[in-house]
């Protein structure tokens, strides 16, 4: 099991009230599975994903990545988990502003001391960005940035890919292309992946669909391949 969330509760302090966004949630994703999470705005999808992505520590409950409980890890160790085991694709691509396309991949590789130029070239080829390797990212369109972010997420060969509305800023045909790309990479490289989305057109590419309801994830549909 690549990702396992166990009895996760997440509360936020809102003045005197406590807002419970996630309540006693259980969730699992296995190798080779591409899972979609849907649900209305504000229901807590991003919150769940950021907990799974070691960006945020839940109020209570345990997070297992590759079978290891990371709930009590110090910040430094969490950074290492993010670096080596998780590829996170943010809604806004969140590339490093001053680097050119190829260096976006080099950053994460350098942090991990594993720069493999051939792999970077392959990944950029796979997302169709190899012709713009030397370009600074401010010249790229939203969809192109998102493709670079996808390549970056795969760079350190993580077991788990998390994507938070990766297609939100794209038009319908572009967003399908991006999800198809993620699906292709996940299946060919045998990763576990979670995509949070509002976009119905994304769903056919996913193996399992969960809906967020009252702070829990409820399985909607499972398509067997």
């Amino acid at each position: 099991m690549t990702l396992k969330l166990q009895h996760i509760t997440q509360q936020f302090q809102d003045g005197d009230d406590t807002l419970t966004v996630v309540e006693n949630l259980d969730f699992e994703v296995n190798k080779g599975e591409l899972v979609a999470i849907i649900g209305p705005s504000g229901c807590g999808k991003s919150t769940v994903l950021s907990i799974a992505g070691a960006l945020q520590t839940p109020t209570s409950g345990d997070v297992f990545i590759n079978g290891k409980n990371i709930s009590n890890y110090p910040k430094n160790k969490l950074a290492d988990v993010r670096l080596k085991n998780i590829g996170y694709i943010f809604q806004a691509s969140n590339l490093v502003p001053f680097l050119m396309v190829k260096d976006q991949l080099k950053v994460v590789a350098d942090l991990n001391n594993t720069w493999d130029e051939k792999r970077a070239d392959e990944l950029l080829e796979a997302v169709g960005m190899s012709h713009r390797k030397k370009q600074h990212i401010q010249h790229l369109s939203g969809g192109e940035k998102q493709r670079v972010a996808i390549a970056r997420a795969f760079m350190n060969d993580p077991e788990l890919i998390l994507a938070d509305e990766p297609t939100a800023s794209l038009d319908a045909s572009r967003s399908e292309e991006i999800v198809a790309l993620i699906a292709h990479e996940v299946h060919t490289r045998n990763k576990a992946a979670v995509i949070v989305t509002h976009d119905e057109s994304v769903l056919p590419y996913c193996d399992i669909i969960y809906e967020m309801q009252q702070g829990k994830l409820v399985k909607q549909k499972e398509t067997s391949q």
């Binding site: 950074a79 993010r82 994460v108």
Partner: peptide
């Protein structure tokens, strides 16, 4: 913001 991004992709405060 940029430090946040770098941390999110795995950079440590120290580096």
């Amino acid at each position: 913001q940029q430090f946040g991004i770098l941390k999110a992709i795995g950079a440590k405060s120290k580096s």
